[in-house]
Protein backbone atom coordinates (compact mmCIF):
# COMPACT_ATOMS: atom_id res chain seq x y z
CA UNK A 1 0.00 0.00 0.00
CA UNK A 2 1.24 3.47 -0.92
CA UNK A 3 -0.03 6.88 0.17
CA UNK A 4 1.77 9.84 -1.27
CA UNK A 5 0.72 13.27 0.00
CA UNK A 6 1.12 15.95 -2.69
CA UNK A 7 0.74 19.71 -2.78
CA UNK A 8 0.25 21.84 -5.88
CA UNK A 9 3.68 23.26 -6.71
CA UNK A 10 5.70 20.77 -4.65
CA UNK A 11 8.82 19.13 -6.20
CA UNK A 12 6.90 16.04 -7.38
CA UNK A 13 4.31 18.19 -9.16
CA UNK A 14 7.01 20.53 -10.48
CA UNK A 15 8.98 17.68 -12.06
CA UNK A 16 5.83 16.24 -13.63
CA UNK A 17 4.92 19.61 -15.15
CA UNK A 18 8.46 20.09 -16.47
CA UNK A 19 8.59 16.76 -18.29
CA UNK A 20 5.02 16.87 -19.56
CA UNK A 21 6.03 17.63 -23.13
CA UNK A 22 9.07 15.36 -23.12
CA UNK A 23 7.77 12.11 -21.74
CA UNK A 24 4.53 10.12 -21.43
CA UNK A 25 5.33 8.09 -18.36
CA UNK A 26 7.14 8.53 -15.05
CA UNK A 27 8.55 5.41 -13.48
CA UNK A 28 8.17 5.56 -9.71
CA UNK A 29 9.68 3.15 -7.20
CA UNK A 30 8.50 3.45 -3.60
CA UNK A 31 9.82 1.65 -0.55
CA UNK A 32 9.62 2.25 3.19
CA UNK A 33 12.71 4.46 2.76
CA UNK A 34 11.20 6.85 0.21
CA UNK A 35 10.38 7.58 -3.40
CA UNK A 36 12.47 7.51 -6.55
CA UNK A 37 10.99 8.94 -9.76
CA UNK A 38 12.63 8.52 -13.13
CA UNK A 39 11.45 9.77 -16.52
CA UNK A 40 13.09 9.55 -19.92
CA UNK A 41 12.11 11.73 -22.84
CA UNK A 42 10.58 10.01 -25.86
CA UNK A 43 13.70 10.62 -27.99
CA UNK A 44 15.99 9.18 -25.28
CA UNK A 45 18.11 12.31 -25.03
CA UNK A 46 17.53 13.18 -21.39
CA UNK A 47 16.63 11.62 -18.06
CA UNK A 48 15.25 13.30 -14.96
CA UNK A 49 15.44 11.62 -11.58
CA UNK A 50 13.84 12.72 -8.30
CA UNK A 51 14.86 11.15 -5.00
CA UNK A 52 12.70 11.88 -2.00
CA UNK A 53 13.49 10.16 1.31
CA UNK A 54 10.50 9.24 3.46
CA UNK A 55 11.59 11.57 6.29
CA UNK A 56 11.27 14.57 3.94
CA UNK A 57 7.76 13.56 2.89
CA UNK A 58 5.23 14.41 5.58
CA UNK A 59 2.51 11.76 5.64
CA UNK A 60 4.35 9.36 3.28
CA UNK A 61 3.21 5.77 3.82
CA UNK A 62 4.58 2.77 1.98
CA UNK A 63 4.79 -0.68 3.51
CA UNK A 64 6.23 -2.65 0.58
CA UNK A 65 8.27 -2.32 -2.62
CA UNK A 66 6.07 -0.70 -5.26
CA UNK A 67 7.17 -0.09 -8.83
CA UNK A 68 4.67 1.76 -11.02
CA UNK A 69 4.45 3.70 -14.27
CA UNK A 70 2.41 6.88 -13.90
CA UNK A 71 0.83 8.52 -16.98
CA UNK A 72 2.26 12.03 -16.63
CA UNK A 73 -0.41 13.92 -18.57
CA UNK A 74 -3.29 12.36 -16.63
CA UNK A 75 -1.63 13.19 -13.32
CA UNK A 76 -0.77 16.77 -14.28
CA UNK A 77 -4.25 17.42 -15.68
CA UNK A 78 -5.80 16.17 -12.45
CA UNK A 79 -3.54 18.29 -10.24
CA UNK A 80 -4.23 21.37 -12.39
CA UNK A 81 -7.97 20.86 -11.80
CA UNK A 82 -7.49 20.91 -8.04
CA UNK A 83 -7.56 23.95 -5.79
CA UNK A 84 -4.36 25.25 -4.15
CA UNK A 85 -5.90 24.59 -0.73
CA UNK A 86 -6.82 20.96 -1.45
CA UNK A 87 -5.03 18.15 0.29
CA UNK A 88 -3.96 15.73 -2.47
CA UNK A 89 -3.10 12.08 -1.89
CA UNK A 90 -1.87 9.61 -4.47
CA UNK A 91 -2.88 6.09 -3.48
CA UNK A 92 -1.96 2.66 -4.75
CA UNK A 93 -3.67 -0.13 -2.86
CA UNK A 94 -3.82 -3.90 -3.02
CA UNK A 95 -7.54 -3.85 -3.79
CA UNK A 96 -7.16 -1.69 -6.91
CA UNK A 97 -4.00 -3.15 -8.39
CA UNK A 98 -3.28 -1.72 -11.84
CA UNK A 99 -4.74 1.69 -11.10
CA UNK A 100 -3.82 4.70 -8.99
CA UNK A 101 -6.20 7.04 -7.24
CA UNK A 102 -5.61 10.73 -6.79
CA UNK A 103 -7.84 12.12 -4.03
CA UNK A 104 -8.47 15.82 -3.49
CA UNK A 105 -9.96 16.94 -0.17
CA UNK A 106 -10.95 20.58 0.26
CA UNK A 107 -10.71 22.41 3.62
CA UNK A 108 -14.51 21.85 3.86
CA UNK A 109 -13.89 18.09 3.43
CA UNK A 110 -15.43 17.94 -0.06
CA UNK A 111 -13.70 15.27 -2.13
CA UNK A 112 -12.84 14.58 -5.76
CA UNK A 113 -11.24 11.28 -6.75
CA UNK A 114 -9.45 10.57 -10.03
CA UNK A 115 -8.64 7.03 -10.95
CA UNK A 116 -6.33 6.13 -13.81
CA UNK A 117 -4.60 3.11 -15.20
CA UNK A 118 -0.94 2.49 -14.47
CA UNK A 119 1.43 2.21 -17.43
CA UNK A 120 4.06 -0.46 -18.03
CA UNK A 121 7.34 1.42 -17.69
CA UNK A 122 9.88 -1.37 -17.23
CA UNK A 123 11.79 -0.43 -20.37
CA UNK A 124 12.10 3.17 -19.27
CA UNK A 125 14.21 2.54 -16.19
CA UNK A 126 17.99 3.02 -16.41
CA UNK A 127 20.85 2.35 -14.03
CA UNK A 128 22.18 5.84 -13.35
CA UNK A 129 25.67 6.72 -12.10
CA UNK A 130 26.23 7.10 -8.37
CA UNK A 131 28.22 9.81 -6.60
CA UNK A 132 31.41 7.74 -6.69
CA UNK A 133 31.13 7.44 -10.48
CA UNK A 134 30.55 11.18 -10.83
CA UNK A 135 33.64 11.94 -8.76
CA UNK A 136 35.91 9.57 -10.63
CA UNK A 137 34.68 9.86 -14.24
CA UNK A 138 33.72 13.50 -14.44
CA UNK A 139 36.48 16.04 -14.98
CA UNK A 140 34.76 19.05 -13.49
CA UNK A 141 31.88 20.45 -11.47
CA UNK A 142 30.40 23.93 -11.13
CA UNK A 143 28.13 25.20 -8.38
CA UNK A 144 25.99 28.23 -9.24
CA UNK A 145 22.70 29.96 -8.30
CA UNK A 146 19.74 28.13 -9.86
CA UNK A 147 18.03 31.37 -10.90
CA UNK A 148 21.14 32.37 -12.85
CA UNK A 149 21.34 28.90 -14.39
CA UNK A 150 17.73 29.12 -15.52
CA UNK A 151 18.29 32.55 -17.04
CA UNK A 152 21.24 31.24 -19.07
CA UNK A 153 19.39 28.11 -20.21
CA UNK A 154 16.46 30.22 -21.37
CA UNK A 155 18.79 32.56 -23.19
CA UNK A 156 20.67 29.68 -24.90
CA UNK A 157 17.48 27.90 -25.85
CA UNK A 158 15.86 31.05 -27.25
CA UNK A 159 18.91 31.77 -29.31
CA UNK A 160 19.71 28.33 -30.65
CA UNK A 161 17.52 25.35 -29.91
CA UNK A 162 19.83 22.78 -31.48
CA UNK A 163 23.44 23.37 -30.57
CA UNK A 164 24.97 24.59 -27.31
CA UNK A 165 28.34 24.15 -25.64
CA UNK A 166 29.43 24.34 -22.00
CA UNK A 167 33.16 24.78 -21.36
CA UNK A 168 34.90 24.93 -18.02
CA UNK A 169 38.46 25.64 -16.94
CA UNK A 170 39.73 26.37 -13.43
CA UNK A 171 39.27 30.08 -14.18
CA UNK A 172 35.93 30.36 -15.93
CA UNK A 173 32.72 28.77 -17.11
CA UNK A 174 31.35 29.59 -20.56
CA UNK A 175 28.07 28.86 -22.28
CA UNK A 176 27.65 29.12 -26.03
CA UNK A 177 24.71 28.61 -28.37
CA UNK A 178 24.54 28.78 -32.12
CA UNK A 179 21.48 30.46 -33.62
CA UNK A 180 20.38 30.78 -37.23
CA UNK A 181 21.43 34.43 -37.46
CA UNK A 182 24.16 34.66 -34.83
CA UNK A 183 25.71 33.23 -31.69
CA UNK A 184 25.43 33.87 -27.95
CA UNK A 185 28.36 33.59 -25.58
CA UNK A 186 28.14 33.86 -21.77
CA UNK A 187 31.20 33.84 -19.51
CA UNK A 188 31.51 33.52 -15.72
CA UNK A 189 34.81 34.20 -14.00
CA UNK A 190 35.69 32.38 -10.80
CA UNK A 191 35.83 35.01 -8.06
CA UNK A 192 38.58 34.25 -5.57
CA UNK A 193 36.95 36.02 -2.63
CA UNK A 194 33.59 34.26 -2.69
CA UNK A 195 33.17 30.62 -3.62
CA UNK A 196 29.96 29.99 -1.68
CA UNK A 197 27.71 31.16 -4.54
CA UNK A 198 29.77 30.28 -7.58
CA UNK A 199 32.47 27.63 -7.47
CA UNK A 200 34.41 25.84 -10.18
CA UNK A 201 36.16 22.59 -9.36
CA UNK A 202 37.99 21.00 -12.32
CA UNK A 203 40.72 18.42 -12.75
CA UNK A 204 41.16 19.36 -16.40
CA UNK A 205 39.32 21.64 -18.86
CA UNK A 206 36.10 20.15 -20.23
CA UNK A 207 34.05 21.07 -23.28
CA UNK A 208 30.65 19.49 -23.82
CA UNK A 209 28.16 20.00 -26.68
CA UNK A 210 24.46 19.45 -26.11
CA UNK A 211 20.94 20.44 -27.18
CA UNK A 212 19.97 23.57 -25.15
CA UNK A 213 16.26 22.79 -25.40
CA UNK A 214 16.51 19.90 -22.93
CA UNK A 215 18.54 21.80 -20.38
CA UNK A 216 16.06 24.67 -20.56
CA UNK A 217 13.18 22.28 -19.89
CA UNK A 218 14.77 21.07 -16.68
CA UNK A 219 16.21 24.41 -15.55
CA UNK A 220 12.88 25.61 -14.15
CA UNK A 221 12.74 22.55 -11.88
CA UNK A 222 16.06 23.51 -10.36
CA UNK A 223 14.73 26.84 -9.11
CA UNK A 224 13.07 24.77 -6.35
CA UNK A 225 16.51 24.96 -4.78
CA UNK A 226 18.78 27.98 -4.41
CA UNK A 227 21.74 26.37 -6.12
CA UNK A 228 22.53 23.87 -8.84
CA UNK A 229 25.62 21.81 -9.39
CA UNK A 230 26.75 20.87 -12.90
CA UNK A 231 28.94 17.80 -13.46
CA UNK A 232 30.88 17.83 -16.72
CA UNK A 233 32.60 15.02 -18.52
CA UNK A 234 34.23 14.62 -21.92
CA UNK A 235 32.72 11.17 -22.35
CA UNK A 236 29.45 11.13 -20.38
CA UNK A 237 26.15 13.02 -20.32
CA UNK A 238 25.97 16.40 -18.65
CA UNK A 239 24.51 16.00 -15.17
CA UNK A 240 22.81 18.78 -13.23
CA UNK A 241 21.75 18.34 -9.62
CA UNK A 242 19.90 20.33 -6.98
CA UNK A 243 19.05 19.45 -3.41
CA UNK A 244 15.44 19.30 -2.23
CA UNK A 245 14.49 19.32 1.46
CA UNK A 246 16.93 17.72 3.89
CA UNK A 247 18.16 14.73 1.88
CA UNK A 248 16.17 14.80 -1.36
CA UNK A 249 17.55 15.71 -4.76
CA UNK A 250 16.69 16.17 -8.42
CA UNK A 251 19.13 15.16 -11.12
CA UNK A 252 18.93 15.50 -14.86
CA UNK A 253 21.16 13.90 -17.47
CA UNK A 254 21.43 15.33 -20.97
CA UNK A 255 23.11 13.20 -23.65
CA UNK A 256 25.97 14.99 -25.41
CA UNK A 257 26.44 15.78 -29.06
CA UNK A 258 29.57 14.72 -30.89
CA UNK A 259 31.06 17.87 -32.31
CA UNK A 260 31.81 18.02 -36.04
Amino acid sequence: MLELPLVKGDPFHHVMEAILDLSDVAHVVCTTRGLNLLAVDTKHLAIVSLLFPAEDFKGYTCDEYISIGIPIRDLVNAIRCGDDKDTITLKVGEENFGTITLSFVSPEKNTVDYEFRLVDAKLERFRLPDRHFLRSKYQGSVKMPSVEFRRICKCLSNFGDEYGVISVTDEDLTYFAKGTDGDVYVEYKQQEEDTTIFKIDVREPVRLAFNPKYLNTFAKVFTLSGQVKLFLSKTHPLMVECKIGQKGRIRCFVAPKVEP
Binding site: H44, F126, R127, N211, P237
Partner: peptide, 14 residues
Protein backbone atom coordinates in the same frame (compact mmCIF):
# COMPACT_ATOMS: atom_id res chain seq x y z
CA UNK B 1 25.67 21.08 -35.50
CA UNK B 2 27.02 17.76 -34.25
CA UNK B 3 25.71 14.24 -33.98
CA UNK B 4 23.25 13.76 -31.15
CA UNK B 5 24.00 10.70 -28.99
CA UNK B 6 21.27 8.80 -27.17
CA UNK B 7 21.14 8.34 -23.41
CA UNK B 8 20.88 4.60 -24.15
CA UNK B 9 24.51 4.64 -25.27
CA UNK B 10 25.57 5.49 -21.71
CA UNK B 11 23.13 3.84 -19.34
CA UNK B 12 21.85 0.30 -19.35
CA UNK B 13 18.24 -0.58 -18.46
CA UNK B 14 17.90 -1.33 -14.76
Amino acid sequence: SGVQLSIKEFYRPD
